[in-house]
C-alpha cells in the first residue's frame, strides 16, 4: 500500500492503494469514472486514454505509482469545458460516433493534439489519432470532425 496524491479533474485526492494497480482500474473501480474503457489492456487501442499533465496517455499502462504528484483529466472532467463542447458539436455534425466505445478516447486524443497544434492538417490529425483504434467509422468522419472543431473553435486552443 502507498499513499498516492494527484489531481483528478481539478480536485486534489489522496488514495491509499496498491501502487501496482493499473490507473485505468483505479479510475473505473475505485473512483467510479467509467468514461475510460478497456479495449485491449496493452496500450494498443486507446479506449482508456486520459490526459496526464495535459497530454494523452494510456491509463491501462500506467501504474498508480506513476500518477503521484501529477495532474489527471478524464473525459468526466473534460466534458465540463468549452473545448469539449466544440468537439462534441463537431463530432455530432460530422457523424463521427457509431458504437461509441472509442469515442471518449478519441476526444482525449483530439484535445491532446489540438493543444499542441491548433490548426492541424488532415495528415497530422491522422497521426494524432494513431493510438486510438475505431472499428466502426473508418476514421474519416472523426478526422472531419476534428478539422471542423479546429476551424470553428479558432482561438479555443
Amino acid at each position: 500500500m502507498a499513499d498516492i496524491t494527484f489531481t483528478l479533474n481539478g480536485e486534489r485526492i489522496t488514495l491509499r492503494e496498491e501502487p501496482n494497480l493499473r490507473f485505468l482500474d483505479v479510475l473505473r473501480e475505485k473512483l467510479n469514472h467509467t468514461g475510460a474503457k478497456e479495449g485491449c489492456g496493452e496500450g494498443e487501442c486507446g479506449a482508456c486514454a486520459i490526459l496526464l499533465d495535459g497530454h494523452i496517455v494510456n491509463s491501462c499502462l500506467l501504474p498508480l505509482a506513476s500518477v503521484d504528484g501529477r495532474d489527471v483529466v478524464t473525459i468526466e472532467g473534460y466534458r465540463m469545458t468549452e473545448r469539449y463542447q466544440m468537439l462534441e458539436k463537431a463530432f455530432i455534425e460530422e457523424g463521427a460516433v457509431q458504437c461509441g466505445i472509442c469515442t471518449p478516447g478519441m476526444m482525449i486524443a483530439a484535445e491532446s493534439m489540438l493543444r499542441e497544434n491548433p490548426d492541424p492538417t488532415d495528415e497530422e490529425i491522422r497521426h494524432g489519432l494513431a493510438g486510438n483504434l475505431c472499428r466502426c467509422t473508418g476514421y474519416n468522419m472523426i478526422i472531419a470532425a476534428i478539422r471542423r472543431a479546429a476551424k470553428e473553435g479558432e482561438g479555443l486552443w
Binding site: R28, T34, G35, A36, K37, E38, T74, I75, E76, R79, L87, E88, F91, I92, G95, V97, C99, G100, I101, T103, P104, M107
Partner: peptide, 21 residues
C-alpha cells in the same frame, strides 16, 4: 436528410453505461 444521432452525446461524454461499466 441527416439528423443528430440520438445517442451521440451520451457516447461522446463517456456517460453511456456499457456492460463492463
Amino acid at each position: 436528410r441527416s439528423i443528430e444521432k440520438v445517442d451521440s452525446r451520451e457516447k461522446i461524454s463517456g456517460a453511456a453505461a456499457f456492460t463492463s461499466d
